[in-house]
Amino acid sequence: MTRWSKVPLVAVAALVGLFLALPTFVLVPLSFTDERTLRFPPDSYSVRWYRNFFESPQWLDAAAHSLAVGLSTAALSTVLGVPIAMSLARSRHRLLPLVNVLVIGPALVPPVIVAIGMFGVLAELDLNRSFPGLVAAHTVLALPVVVIAVLASARTLDVTVERAAASLGASPVRVFVHTVLPAIAPGVVIGALYGFVTSWDELVVSLFITGPTYQTLPVQMWNQVRNTADPTAVAVSTMLITLSTIVLVTAYLVTRARSDRKRRPL
């Protein structure tokens, strides 16, 4: 390709990027408005809506719930996802395709379907509007993400390395800790991060199974924007975008570190 023939491609890519990023450019300045209404550009700036967030027990509770549910979901889906991914990568059992479908399924079904099903099941168990119920629901959604991330690195594992470790005196647990875990660690880290993010900004399922007594951040924002449209939600959005960016950049850096290691000369 010549220098000039790239111009249309670059232009289209830039436009798409701009279109995707544009809300952020509006959102961030707007979160610092000094006014009560959402008008862009604001006439004066302040951090009052940030202060409002940190002074409101309702917002802080929602954030605390989201954080707790997110971390628990990340932990639970990783603990369940790693062995599932390892079996999918290794075993030849004839029921594995079924396991695969069951695990990956929730990623393919529309969220509202999962939400309705979850609501029914959790109502039966009397777990709606509770921390365990929410973690269970989010883990169902996060599991496919974790399994897919771990599976990608588990498939590259060399069984002879594990056999070598065993012959050198490592018990099965130590074989896993010393050879399998280091090899799949990047996949596990990425899986856990995505698992957290999945829970952190999950709205549809949460709307069904939370209530006034137990809300997550996205649900609180949803209610707020529908009722009062005060700029606190925008300030929260800005903070969420910042957090998500940090998580995704971390994931990117982990991935890059991994491919750098592979690219080293022999």
Partner: peptide, 20 residues
């Protein structure tokens, strides 16, 4: 006896070193 208790060293064709 499981492999890790046999006290037997093994060398494979593909080296099987620990890359990390």
């Amino acid at each position: 006896v499981p492999p890790h208790k046999r006290d037997i060293g093994i060398v494979f064709q593909n080296y099987a070193l620990f890359p990390h």
